[in-house]
């Protein structure tokens, strides 16, 4: 019993091809991989949009921005 095409490392080794488990599932794996990739982007874009909106709301006022600008202004250090 093996999850792949290999049950022994003896015999004619030149007959051994793919050695990963579940040979024959490649297309399913590819689709799952692409879905994971697209899902990652959707999650990331949503999360980034929320964060940027929140930051713009929180820091988008004269007091915060002036404080940050003062801290990086060489003439005010």
């Amino acid at each position: 019993m093996s999850t792949g095409n290999v049950e022994s490392w003896t015999g004619n080794m030149s007959e051994i091809g793919a050695v990963y488990p579940f040979v024959g599932m490649e297309t399913t794996l590819m689709i799952a991989g692409i879905v994971f990739w697209v899902w990652w982007h959707i999650c990331q874009v949503r999360s980034e949009s929320r964060e940027l909106e929140e930051e713009a709301r929180k820091h988008g006022n004269a007091e915060t921005m002036n404080k940050v600008l003062d801290s990086s202004d060489p003439s005010k250090r």
């Binding site: 080794m13 007959e15 051994i16 091809g17 050695v19 990963y20 040979v23 024959g24 490649e26 590819m30």
Partner: peptide, 17 residues
């Protein structure tokens, strides 16, 4: 192609696909 058996660990024996 991403679903090719050659895009995975393979020892060079006869193909399945």
């Amino acid at each position: 192609t991403a679903n090719s058996e050659l895009m995975g660990s393979h020892l060079g024996g006869p193909p399945v696909q």
